[in-house]
Computed example of a mutant assay.
Amino acid sequence: MFEIFGFIIPLIVILVIVGIFLSFVPLGLWISAVSAGVRVNIFSLVGMRLRRVRADKIIRPLIKAQKAGMNVNANQLESHLLSGGRVDNVVDALIAAHRANLDLSFERAAAIDLAGRNVFEAVKMSVTPKIIETPWISAVAIDGIEVKVIAKVTVRANLSRLVGGAGEETIIARVGEGIVTTVGSSQSHKSVLENPDLISRTVLSKGLDNGTAFEILSIDIADVDIGRNIGAHLQIQQAEADKQIAQAKAEERRATAIAKEQEMRAEVEHMKAKVVEAEAEVPRAMAEALRSGNLGVMDYYRMQNVQADTAMKNNVGNTDLSKVFHKEQCIETKDN
């Protein structure tokens, strides 16, 4: 009985120790690495486990890199993974660059990856150039005609400038600026339509890829179209503005004339009031003259007769003689 317990207890202890060891060491991954010819210390795998690093994200890319003949070690990959990088993407980029005979070190590839760029896509773009198509770019020639252009820019990634270099948006903006400048300096839109390659040659000579992550290989004009007559449109707007200004000035003069007319009418009414006031003083002055003896009664009557004669003559002068003659003819007709 004691012999059985003496055999079982050590066996249980050994099984517990092996279980604890296997929980810390991915034995299957270690066997895969050894069978692939990659030397990995088993205690390094234990250290990755303690540092909370997934060993498969290090060992599998390491196997792939060494099988491709890349000089990369596990410490470099683990350091890049702990920095927040994409280890598998970096290893794929190194293998692609090595196959394409491109000069790309692990440090540069890791820096590009940590900068937020897809280093594997950048390597593929270095091997196979990419075509960037601009949207419709509108420019106006000197004759006032709008010209719309679509350009296709063939670029190749520049691995040495991927860190800190500008992206595709900058390339599109610079190409658009070059197109606007070239078309805007043309005397006629017809010259642009006849020689669209003039735009690509002029834009390409400006060195638009300076400070960017790309190298511009060519700029090809894909489409050219005619837009609005901007010059005529601006002239119409200017004429409309001049018309509105003239109308405003005329309205100002009319308002001034109306105000002046109102002032003159007020002045006339004021003068009429003065006349009425002066006429009201006449009877008072005559009464005072009669009272003081400066005007006699006979003089007053003669003055009344003169005023009556004057009023009668005014009435006769204002009468329409044709109406009087017509009235007399009507009377004679009735009498007959």
Rank of each mutant, 00 (worst) to 15 (best):
E3L: 12
I4L: 14
I8M: 10
V13G: 08
G28E: 03
S35F: 05
I42L: 00
S44Y: 15
L45V: 08
G47Q: 08
M48L: 13
R49A: 02
R52C: 11
A68W: 06
G69R: 01
G69V: 04
L77Y: 03
H80M: 11
L81R: 06
G84Y: 10
G85M: 01
L102D: 02
L102R: 09
I112P: 09
G116F: 13
R117V: 12
V119H: 04
P129S: 00
I145M: 03
V149P: 01
V153F: 02
T154I: 07
V155E: 07
V155D: 01
S160H: 10
R161S: 05
L162I: 15
G164V: 13
T170S: 06
V175K: 06
E177L: 13
T181A: 15
T182A: 09
G184P: 04
L198S: 15
I199P: 10
R201P: 11
G211F: 02
T212F: 03
E215P: 09
L217I: 14
D223C: 03
V224W: 01
G227R: 05
N229V: 00
I230A: 03
Q238V: 12
E240P: 09
E240N: 10
A241Y: 12
K243Y: 14
Q247E: 15
K249Y: 06
A250M: 06
E251G: 10
A255L: 05
A257V: 14
K260P: 06
K260Y: 14
A266I: 12
M271G: 03
K274L: 11
M298S: 13
R302K: 15
M303F: 13
N315K: 10
G317K: 12
T319F: 02
T319H: 04
K323N: 09
F325W: 05
H326L: 13
K327P: 01
E328Y: 06
K334V: 11
